[in-house]
Computed example of a mutant assay.
Amino acid sequence: MSSVVLRDVTLRDGLQLTGRLLPTDRKVALVRTLLAAGVPELEIGSLARADVVPPLADTLDVVAALTPEELDRCWVWVATPRHVQRAVAAGARNVQYCFSVSDAHNNANVGRDTAVSLDAMPDAVAAAREAGGRIQLCLATAFTCPFDGPVDPGRVVEIVADPRTAGSCDVVVCDTLGQAVPSEVGALVSRVAAVAGGRRIAFHGHDTWGQGVANALAAVAAGATLLDGALGGLGGCPFAPGASGNTACEDLLFALRPDWVTPGVLANLVTVSEDLLDELGEPNRSRAAQGVRSRAAAFPWTAGPRA
């Protein structure tokens, strides 16, 4: 599975529910640390309202501090064409245009029905393209909605096949609540891939019910080539009651073993994650991180307890 790309979403989805704020310079330093470690892509923030999601209020400052070469590997979450314009004006190259398949969650998350977000997508695509950037279609609550329950998979497929979304470079299928199981993930990703028209398929999972890695592997088997994860399983959605953190990057990397990840690289990322989580006062939910810190010296992926 060396061809599967990991996108670290710590600085967006990972920070949404943290009680402590991470300073801008610390975010920029973390971006550079992760890129230098070999992480292929990052999600570095969101243009959500600052009063609603305070930990992400400085996203455009983070963008402005990064070089064009760094920004080529970074993504910013947006929900409107105006968000796209603001992001690219600050220097962003890649934006993730997100809305929910469920009307109830879309209204809670971005204050409008799904149809309104879908209608606006061509303008968002045009704004990204005019700036020479890329734009993803990101579908939240693709499996279940915290307010309305199960989501019709056919509705997800319809949106992906809709001509208004055709200008996107990727399709991100989100298990926002972490309630899906591998059979559901594999079935939906397979259907999405069949109508995506060659666009890259991404899977964004949460580990609420302990299925994060299993769901990610099912997505890959069905055609996904990009997986989202956060350091230490950090994160969650403020508008999705019952959702816990993202699937941990450490767990995904240990399972996938991409070419750039060696035992030393994984151990280094575990240390980076531990320092960040300590700074934020957040628990470490990664099982692979626990494994790295074990005393099983005969296993090459262990590094032992920290000095």
Rank of each mutant, 00 (worst) to 15 (best):
A248S: 13
G198Q: 13
R200W: 15
A216S: 15
R191T: 11
L276F: 08
A216L: 05
G236F: 01
R295N: 09
D251V: 09
I159T: 03
G229M: 00
L177A: 13
I159H: 01
S286I: 00
G264E: 15
A180T: 01
E274P: 03
G236I: 00
C249W: 02
A187F: 06
N284S: 10
E184P: 04
V213R: 07
T262K: 09
N268Q: 14
V156R: 13
Q211L: 12
V173I: 12
D228L: 09
S168H: 14
H206Q: 08
A196H: 13
D170E: 15
V156C: 15
V292G: 01
T225S: 15
V185I: 14
Q179I: 11
R257C: 10
G167P: 10
G229R: 04
P163E: 10
G235M: 07
A214Q: 07
A194N: 07
R295S: 14
T225Y: 07
L231W: 03
G232Y: 02
G197N: 00
P153T: 11
R287I: 14
G236H: 06
W260I: 06
L188W: 09
A219W: 08
C169W: 12
V156G: 14
D152Y: 06
R257D: 05
S244R: 11
V160L: 04
A224I: 08
F254D: 05
A255R: 04
L226S: 13
E184C: 04
E158K: 05
Q211K: 11
E279V: 02
V270E: 03
L231E: 03
